[in-house]
Write a protein that binds this DNA or RNA. Structure first.
Length: 275
DNA sequence: CCTGAAACCTGTCTGC
DNA sequence: TGCAGACAGGTTTCAG
């Protein structure tokens, strides 16, 4: 499900509340239940359950599409992949729901549930988060990433734009929705080659990526289908899942093609392959 | 290095 | 109605 804005929304709600969530910082873990063992990337189940006990949650943040839970001894890293979600409930109301894969119990009676219909999500318990997160590309919203840097990074590869933007080692956080939306606003075809973009176009693209991500965060992310409720960005899609509907800029019907096995939605007039 | 296909999963929707 | 097939927010791995 989630891309950067959805993961950011979830991380913020666990850190500071909001979205009907109770913050978990300061809570101490008293036990945990793993109902789908493959959810655990590392360490093994027994070590995981033992090492979690007694750890105090210090801070919840985000890196790329990972939720980063810093505790007093270790880090809990959670990747929601396609259908994962997190929720906090008080003990009196807390019940295992269908597709709950992991429940973490706190000493004050609250519980954190990891729910993941499609079972693609993964959890790591590590002392050094960089070992897992170190390969990620820059954060798109990090001001340290300049337009010039971005242009150089684009030019150093010979890739189709769409798959390159989805590559988390190139840039961390973009997924199928926000990439399609950004390419549309930037007026760039998803199959355009990365190394042939002018520095103006590259600069424009970075600016648009930031706009779209910030718009997503402002709307608490996008809620589609049965997964992840509470977001509103799905009502602002310009091209994503709007095949055949008019382009908001020129009225031409939106087209859908497969690029790297992912649906890509674009306007054939606003996003010409050649320019 | 780049691209495409397959795999990992469950659920929903469409068309015959 | 039933059932096959396509498709869904992501990533990894392998073949060419």
């Amino acid at each position: 499900m989630p891309e950067l804005p959805e993961v950011e929304t979830i991380a913020r709600s666990l850190q500071s509340g909001g979205r009907g969530q109770v913050p978990i910082s300061g809570k101490v873990i008293s036990s945990a239940k793993l109902t789908w063992p493959r959810t655990l990337a590392e360490p093994g189940k027994n070590t995981f359950l033992k090492r979690l006990l007694g750890q105090r949650v210090e801070e919840v943040s985000r890196r790329g599409k990972f939720i980063v839970i810093r505790m007093d001894k270790d880090y809990l890293l959670i990747h929601l992949r396609m259908s994962g979600d997190l929720r906090v409930e008080v003990e009196a109301e807390a019940q295992l729901q269908p597709h709950d894969r992991l429940a973490i119990h706190f000493t004050d009676g609250y519980r954190l549930f990891f729910n993941d219909t499609r079972k693609f999500g993964r959890v790591w318990l590590v002392s050094d988060p960089q070992r897992i997160l170190g390969g990620l590309g820059p954060e798109p919203l990090d001001g340290a990433l300049t337009a010039e840097d971005f242009h150089i990074r684009l030019a150093s590869r010979k890739r189709q734009l769409k798959p390159l933007l989805l590559d988390q080692t190139f840039m961390a956080g973009l997924g199928n929705i926000y990439t399609d939306e950004a390419l549309h606003i930037a007026g760039l075809h998803p199959l355009r080659r990365s190394d042939l973009l002018s520095s103006d176009k590259a600069s424009k693209l970075l600016g648009v990526i930031r706009e779209v991500l910030l718009e997503g965060i402002r709307n608490n992310g996008a809620s589609i289908d049965w997964v992840y409720r509470g977001g509103d960005f799905q009502n602002h899609f310009r091209v994503y899942q709007r095949t055949g509907k008019p382009c908001p800029a020129c009225g031409t019907p939106i087209q859908r093609i497969l690029v790297g096995q992912r649906s890509s939605h674009f306007c054939p007039v606003c996003q010409e392959l050649t320019d």
